[in-house]
Design a protein around this nucleic acid. Structure first.
Length: 421
RNA sequence: GUGGGUGUAGCUCAACGGCAGAGCGCCUGACUGUGGCUCAGGAGGUUGUGGGUUCGAAUCCCAUCACCCACCCCA
């Protein structure tokens, strides 16, 4: 550990075999659910033209301003590692004329995203999201379905005591008025705001609402609420979302201070919080982005999506003591006892693998004791010991590692016993 | 970008101015054909790095890097 020449870059991590079951569990659960809700897989590049994200996510957002991995490639183009999925998926939607498909187009994807943050618990520079988007439909029913899918996903993972927070932040028609109302509210109080919030006041007043500084937090208590400034359409839409959520049976809590960090959100925004409200807690979040596709040069097209952080889910699973199902194939260890059987091991292990089991053995020439120790370490459920004498008679010593009982049987018999469990 | 904490064996940690250790893990052995338990042995560290103080530094001081935690932001 002392001073290795190479280490993984800051904020990145290796996903070791021990943790892989968590990843598989989460991904399988997410994919399984997304598919039954009618979502299809899409994969978009890990890097795009930086402008896509700058236009899409928003020039003024922290993500674009200070967290994006941006670089010039050898051809002189300004590229960026994706800081999120939605912009890339919308770009793909436009590029491939998906508006001609049955609407809404429902797509899911998963993979690494990148943000140049200072790493801490639950926050990494390369992290992984599962993401789904539904594009081309503005019925609030769809909002509710998307939220329902998110909710069922965590439920199916076995996570308990989560909270779904919901808000509506209006759209291009009503948000300006709300923004002004916020400014009007905060201006007389500006001296009591933290320095960040003083900046936000003019630049992005919505963000004043979720500042965690005690004084700012206290002031935001009585701040104007976005829901009171919604235009008729947005208000009706939000009411619709709540009605439909009731029909889906998804419990939610209105949070008037819920705003989100990406500029493209309109109307519905939501976030899923774990019980222990920590700093980097949010497990996932999403919302509507009815202006994004147009912003990217397409015809006005509504959309809504959701993203959840894999690493944070794993933290929460561990927090709640939930372990992923281990559905491993039986490990069958083949041991040799002399030179002839050592050579024959190749064939026997081959038969084990052809039968669909995990077939392993020792290399070199190890003592039987050492081989069985290895078998134990590898978690073998069974050992096939090739005794010189038995092997000559076409049989093997079939050992059940859990009980230690063993019997001399033919290889076929051994394999079929393993198959039966 | 800001603040705090921590760096000793693969892992978890002792030693806190005087010979760098333990447990776990790994390897070998205890009837040259049988794992787990036990016992014995072994491999593995320039104490993150660089400087300073000191007769002597893992230990005290400074710097630096890394990791962790919090702010910020968000997944």
């Amino acid at each position: 550990m002392a001073d290795l020449k190479y280490r993984s870059p800051r904020g990145t991590s290796d996903i070791l075999p021990e943790d892989q079951p968590y990843w598989a569990f989460i991904l399988e659960t997410a994919v399984g659910l997304a598919e039954v809700y009618g979502y299809q897989r899409v994969d978009v590049p890990i890097f795009e033209f930086a402008d896509l994200y700058i236009r899409g996510v928003g020039e003024a957002t922290d993500i674009v301003q200070k967290e994006m991995y941006i670089f010039e490639d050898r051809g002189g183009d300004r590229m960026a590692l994706r800081p999120e999925f939605t912009a890339g998926i919308c770009r793909a939607y436009l590029q491939h004329g998906m508006s001609n498909r049955p609407l809404p187009v429902k797509l899911w994807t998963a993979g690494p995203v990148f943000r140049y943050d200072r790493p801490q618990r639950g926050r990494y520079r390369q992290f992984h999201q599962f993401n789904y988007e539904a594009i081309g439909e503005l019925d609030p029913w769809l909002d509710a379905e998307v939220i329902d899918l998110a909710w069922r996903f965590y439920e199916r993972l076995g996570l308990k005591d989560l909270t779904l927070e919901l808000n509506s932040i209006g759209d291009g028609r009503c948000r300006p008025a709300y923004r002004e109302a916020l400014r009007a509210y905060y201006r007389p109080l500006v001296d009591r705001l933290c320095s960040d919030c003083k900046d936000r006041l003019e630049r992005n007043p919505l963000r004043l609402l979720d500042c965690k500084q005690p004084t700012c937090w206290a002031l935001s208590e009585a701040a104007p609420r976005s829901v009171d400034y919604l235009c008729d359409e947005c208000r009706e839409h939000f009411a619709g979302v709540q009605e439909w959520l009731g029909r889906y049976g998804v419990p939610y809590r209105l949070n008037h201070r819920l705003v989100r960090g990406l500029d493209y959100y309109t109307k519905t925004v939501f976030e899923v919080q774990p019980p222990r409200q920590g700093a980097q807690a949010a497990l996932g979040g999403g919302g509507r982005y009815d202006g994004l596709i147009e912003e990217l040069g397409g015809r006005p097209t509504p959309g809504i999506g959701f993203a959840t952080g894999m690493e944070r889910i794993i933290l929460e699973l561990k927090e709640q003591g939930i372990s992923p199902p281990g559905r491993k194939l039986p490990v069958v260890f083949v041991a040799y006892t002399g030179e002839a059987t050592r050579l024959a091991t190749v064939g026997v292990v081959g038969r084990v693998r052809a039968a669909g089991f995990i077939g392993v053995h020792a290399f070199g020439s190890r003592s039987l004791k050492s081989q069985l120790r290895l078998a134990d370490g590898l978690g073998a459920g069974y050992a096939l010991i090739l005794g010189e004498e038995e092997y000559r008679q076409g049989r093997v010593v079939f050992r059940d590692m859990a009980t230690g009982s063993q019997e001399v049987v033919s290889l076929e018999e051994a394999l079929s016993r393993i198959r039966r469990g």
